[in-house]
C-alpha cells in the first residue's frame, strides 16, 4: 500500500517532447511507471519512443487512454495553463515539476481548483514516488526501496538525502512526496500527513521543511491532536539571513515570521523528533520508532 500513486497509476506527460520532459519520461518508464500518453499541442499522432501516443490535448488523452495522473514539464510561462488543462480533463492527480511559475498564476490555479476533485503536487518539486511501483518526477529511482516510511518534503535534493539515509540503513519508504518550494502550491505538509496517517502501510513519517510560511506549524498543530505515528522532522534554514530569498521563492524569513527556530519549537511541542543536522534525519526517526 501507499498513497496517491501505485502500480495502477496511468500517467500522461504534458510536455513529453521537450528535452527535459523526454529524458525524465524515459527514466520513469525505466523505473516501471505506466506511461500511457503524452501531450504536446500540434504533435498529435506521433509515437514517443515508438510506444507512447502523443495527443494535442489532455482532454483527448484522457478519453483515449484513461490516464489518471499527469506529470507537467511545460515551461513556466505556460505551466499554470497546463495544470488547469489536466484538472479540466478530470485527471485525478497532477504533478507539476516546472520551476519558475509566477506566483499570481498559481494563485489563480489554486482558486480555480477549489471546487474540483483533482489533487496537485508542486509546482517546483521533484515529484512523487511509491518505491517499486510508480515514479512520477525527477528523483533518482535507485536510492529508494519499498517499505513503511512516508516522506514529505519541500525540497528536492534534501529529500534524496533523507531517503538515501533511510535506504542505506535498511529502511524502505511507502511513498515519498516532494511538495515543492513555492509560496503557493498544491498539497501541503498537512494534506500529506493526513494521507499517510490514514495509510495502513505507513508506520512512520519524515517531515522536511524549510524557512518561510507557516505550513510546518499547521501540520505540527494537527499532528499534536490527531496523529499517533512516530515522526521525525528537519527544518532547513536555521542559519539563513532574514529578508533574503534562499533559492526557493518560498524560503524567506520576513518580519520575524517563518523562522526555523519557530518551526522547530512548534514541531517539538507536537511530540515530533527534530533532527539537529540534515545528516541525522534517518537516525532520528529510527530512534523515535524504537522509543
Amino acid at each position: 500500500m501507499s498513497i496517491l500513486v501505485d502500480k495502477n497509476t496511468r500517467l500522461v506527460v504534458q510536455g513529453i517532447t521537450g528535452s527535459a520532459g523526454a529524458f525524465h519520461t524515459r527514466q520513469c518508464m525505466d523505473y516501471g511507471t505506466n506511461v500511457v500518453a503524452g501531450v504536446t499541442p500540434g504533435k498529435s499522432g506521433q509515437m514517443f519512443d515508438g510506444q507512447v501516443p502523443v495527443f494535442d490535448t489532455v482532454w483527448e488523452a484522457r478519453r483515449k487512454t484513461g490516464c489518471n495522473a499527469s506529470m507537467v514539464f511545460v515551461p513556466a510561462p505556460a505551466a499554470a495553463d497546463s495544470i488547469l488543462e489536466a484538472v479540466d480533463a478530470g485527471v485525478e492527480l497532477v504533478v507539476c515539476i516546472t520551476e519558475g511559475i509566477p506566483v499570481m498564476d498559481m494563485m489563480r490555479v489554486k482558486a480555480l481548483m477549489r471546487e474540483k476533485q483533482s489533487q496537485l503536487i508542486g509546482p517546483n518539486c521533484p515529484g512523487i514516488i511509491t518505491p517499486g511501483e510508480c515514479k512520477i518526477g525527477i528523483m533518482p529511482g535507485y536510492i529508494h526501496r519499498p517499505g513503511n516510511i512516508g516522506v514529505i518534503s519541500r525540497s528536492g535534493t534534501l529529500t534524496y538525502e533523507a531517503v538515501w539515509q533511510l535506504t542505506s540503513r535498511g529502511h524502505g519508504q511507502s511513498t515519498c512526496i516532494g511538495i515543492g518550494g513555492d509560496p503557493i502550491g498544491g498539497l501541503s505538509h498537512l494534506d500529506c500527513v493526513k494521507l499517510f496517517n490514514e495509510d495502513p502501510a505507513t508506520d512512520a513519517m519524515i517531515l522536511i521543511g524549510e524557512i518561510g510560511g507557516s505550513a510546518e506549524e499547521e501540520a505540527a498543530d494537527w499532528i499534536r491532536k490527531n496523529c499517533k505515528k512516530p515522526i521525525a522532522a528537519f527544518i532547513a534554514g536555521l542559519t539563513a539571513p532574514p529578508g533574503r530569498r534562499m533559492g526557493h521563492a518560498g524560503a524567506i524569513v520576513s518580519g520575524g515570521k517563518g523562522t526555523a527556530a519557530g518551526k522547530i519549537e512548534a514541531l517539538k511541542a507536537a511530540g515530533i523528533a527534530v533532527a539537529a543536522t540534515p545528516a541525522a534525519i534517518a537516525d532520528t526517526l529510527i530512534a523515535r520508532m524504537k522509543a
Binding site: 528537519f234 542559519t239 533559492g247
Partner: peptide, 23 residues
C-alpha cells in the same frame, strides 16, 4: 545543488562550529 540542501549544508557547517561564506 538544490536550495533546500544548500540551506541545510550551511546549517550543518554552523552546527560543527564553522561559518558559511555563501549560499
Amino acid at each position: 545543488n538544490g536550495a533546500g540542501l544548500a540551506m541545510a549544508t550551511m546549517d550543518i557547517i554552523k552546527f560543527y562550529g564553522g561559518e558559511p561564506a555563501n549560499f
